[in-house]
Write a protein that binds this DNA or RNA. Structure first.
Length: 722
DNA sequence: TATATAGTGTTTTTT
DNA sequence: ACACTATATA
């Protein structure tokens, strides 16, 4: 083994955290303060200097991306030291729990090959139950889903949920929750919340199992601790209570997941939970310029109950923050692209150095269209997720059914996909038969011959479907995963259905299934059918963020939530308007507004070199045009940090506009795509497109190229002769 | 009884 | 882009 200095280049606070040996430690890590570095170096320090076996160390994160990065960096340090005695376990909360449950969940009378239900699966199960209970009229399914989710995050039983609800349908919701849990268990299915809460249940009911893991994971680290919910908090504390070597890292200013049950109190009261805890604050920032940090601080300091901290950097003030005020959402896209192209010319930045962040996924559409118009490469993260697409989910449902015949959600999803004349009535009849005979739905399907009320054609249709599943199930233990997936696509009739009509849409869907096949290939070398189980696990737990192509040279578009933990040289926080950001649904709730503020802080602190804040004075939302005020967050930033503040001019036009001009309906010139125009500065040009009061004009003089001009202010004239 | 088709509404954020 | 609904047709 080679000796390496793990505290080299660390500041005193970082070094203190890295050298921490035993007992609880709270690391308050401001944005860009070298947090990952501290965690990885501390892991290496435990292993290399203190001789702790890797096997005894656990690091928990929230995203696969963070876990992967951490794993890689630890591996690199250990390699440098020529250490080759294994790596510590780095996992997300969810994958960690799956691991434990696969080993011991049979103790809770659930199959170890359980199926993981995503939120869509659980929604369809809730729907089925609501229907069964005849409550469709009075119950909002999504609302019930969120109540159930909340209950699980808080480790509530249905009785607890009842006690904690004042809603007038609380009794009904409580019943649905109880029934949902019963059905989930019968299906050997676990939803996301269950992954955590069942693990807690296992630990609480079987102290020997808990003890096994306490002995194994003597050193525990939890990243993004401010985002833990009650269930994750209890889980962490159970695991850590024996040896108390718990290091939690987080930043209360970056808590943005309360809507998913995260409880900011977990980090704020760590010192009460562990009075012997040491606390380290990391306030030196290595990412951004001082201007960016100051502006971000001016936004976040308005929140109450923060752990006071103020980030600083040695990197100097840097550029001012650009405030880009646009006429419309279309204009916003165009102006952002103008800025990107300017910077690429001036500073030789690449497309991948830019990120566009937005509050809601819906905003991505218009921005995407702008990138398409200009032929600029881009990557959208999130939105409609790959694994959530219909055709992908359908094939996955077949695969799940092969491993778990009790999985009713998957069964009901595919029983008539492609259409095989097994409709609603038939399903109802079979379900009734199953209920009276005390059978599962699948078992009932196997005995349809005994159901007198079904017609002969229907019985044939069912037995054909059953045959397909049974024969594929036999293959599952023989074939490599990708071959099996191919078999499913073909023998289910899915391929035939898509090939029947060669529309663009169907070609796309086939393409998506090919992509699914290529993911499946990764599991071909594994034992069967374990490979299939692991493939389905990846599909259930992976997020779109994990599929971000690191090497691709394209501008990145994502929600502010997705951007946490990432950094980019140039960041645009878009849609800085009241009712959009802060979002409409947060306006009457002080706590929600504080979270919006934190979200803004997270977005701003992603920027390394330059930050752009953009807003549209008019925006089309669900078919109606809204003229929202500039976001209150913009008003919190002092003007001397800003450039281009509220001048309301487009880059090609030097006219100043007052707020008054905006309140009037702008008078657009009669200019359309294809028209020839002239401009006093840029000369002659041709109009490429007109949208949202903005004309895109391609000027004859190559020096000016393509410009975007607001029709209400640009001194454009229509050319009459050619 | 099952299916095809057209029309409508949805969306705040997601492991 | 998807889910859901209403309606016509086999």
């Amino acid at each position: 083994m080679k000796k390496i200095d793990l505290t080299q280049d660390l500041n005193p606070q970082q070094a203190e955290a890295v050298l921490h040996q035993k007992g609880p430690l709270l690391i308050i890590a401001g944005a860009g303060s070298g947090k990952t570095r501290v965690i990885t170096h501390r892991v290496a320090h435990l292993i290399l200097e203190l001789g702790v076996p890797s096997y005894n160390i656990l690091a928990v994160t929230f995203t696969n991306k963070a876990a992967g990065e951490m794993k890689q960096r630890v591996e690199k340090i250990l390699q440098q030291a020529n250490f080759d005695l294994g790596l510590p376990l780095v996992a997300t909360f969810h994958s960690f729990c799956v691991r434990i449950l696969r080993a011991d969940i049979d103790k809770l009378a659930i199959e170890r090959s359980f199926t993981i239900y995503d939120d869509k699966d659980s929604l369809s199960l809730i729907k089925k139950i609501v229907k069964k209970m005849g409550l469709e009229e009075d119950i909002n399914i999504k609302q019930v889903a969120s109540y159930i989710d909340k209950a699980k995050n808080n480790l509530w039983t249905s009785a607890d949920l009842r006690a904690n609800s004042s809603y007038h349908l609380a009794d009904k919701i409580t019943q649905i929750y109880a029934e949902y849990q019963r059905e989930l268990k019968a299906a050997d299915g676990l939803d996301f919340g269950d992954l955590i809460s069942r693990t807690v249940e296992l630990f609480q009911k079987f102290p020997d199992v808990l003890d096994k893991y306490q002995e194994r994971f003597k050193y525990i680290m939890v990243d993004e601790y401010q985002d833990t919910n009650e269930a994750q908090y209890v889980l962490t504390n159970l695991l850590a209570q024996k040896y108390r070597n718990l290091v939690v890292v987080g930043d209360d200013d970056q808590a943005i997941y309360s809507w998913r049950g995260a409880n900011i109190q977990n980090i704020l009261s760590f010192e009460d939970d562990f009075p012997e805890a040491k606390v380290v604050k990391l306030e030196q920032n290595y990412r951004s310029t001082q201007n960016i940090l100051d502006a971000a601080w001016q936004v976040i300091c308005k929140n109450s109950g923060r752990k006071e901290k103020k980030l600083w950097t040695e990197q100097g003030r840097g550029d001012l923050i650009s405030l880009v005020e646009c006429f419309s959402e279309v204009d916003e896209g165009e102006r952002i692209i103008g800025q990107i192209e300017d910077l690429i010319l001036e500073r030789r930045a690449r497309y991948r150095d830019f990120a566009l962040l937005y509050r809601t996924n819906a905003q991505s559409r218009v921005l995407e269209e702008a990138f398409l118009r200009h032929g600029i490469p881009y990557q959208i993260i999130g939105g409609v997720k790959f694994y959530a697409r219909k055709e992908v989910k359908d094939i996955i449902a077949y695969l799940r059914l092969l491993l778990n015949e009790n999985d009713v959600v998957s069964l009901l999803r595919v029983i008539n996909v492609p259409p095989r004349k097994i409709g609603e009535k038939t399903i109802e009849t079979v379900q009734n038969f199953a209920n009276t005979q005390g059978l599962s739905f699948w078992q009932a399907l196997l005995r349809t011959e005994e159901i007198d009320s079904l017609g002969p054609q229907t019985k044939v249709a069912i037995s054909r479907f059953v045959e397909v599943v049974l024969s594929l199930r036999k293959e599952a233990s023989k074939l490599a995963v990708s071959s099996l997936v191919r078999q499913v696509i073909e023998r289910s009739g899915y391929k035939k259905m898509l090939m029947a009509e060669a529309t663009e849409e169907n070609k796309d869907r086939m393409g998506n299934l090919e992509e699914l096949l290529s993911v499946a290939k990764k599991y071909d070398q594994m034992d069967r059918p374990d490979g299939l189980l692991l493939f389905l696990e990846e599909v259930a737990l992976v997020s779109d963020l994990d599929n971000m192509e690191e090497g691709k040279n394209g501008v990145i578009l994502m929600t502010l939530h997705n951007a946490k933990g990432l950094e980019f040289p140039y960041v645009f926080v878009t849609g800085m308007e009241e009712e959009l950001f802060p979002h409409f649904n947060s306006l009457d709730d002080a706590a929600a507004l504080e979270e919006e503020r934190r979200l803004c802080y997270v977005g701003m602190t992603r920027a390394k070199k330059k930050l752009f804040l953009t807003l549209a004075r008019s925006r089309l939302i669900y078919g109606t045009t809204k003229n929202n005020e500039p976001s209150r967050f913009l008003l919190d930033i002092s003007p001397d940090l800003l450039q281009g503040a509220f001048v309301g001019s487009l880059d090609a036009v030097s006219n100043y506009s007052t707020d008054d001009e905006y309140s009037q309906e702008p008078e657009y010139m009669d200019i359309n795509a294809g028209d020839l125009v002239s401009h006093p500065t840029f000369g002659r040009g041709k109009v490429v497109s007109v949208q949202g009061g903005v004309a895109t004009v391609s000027f004859d003089n190559d020096k000016y190229g393509v410009k975007r001009l607001a029709l209400s202010v640009a001194p454009l004239e229509k050319e009459k002769d050619f």
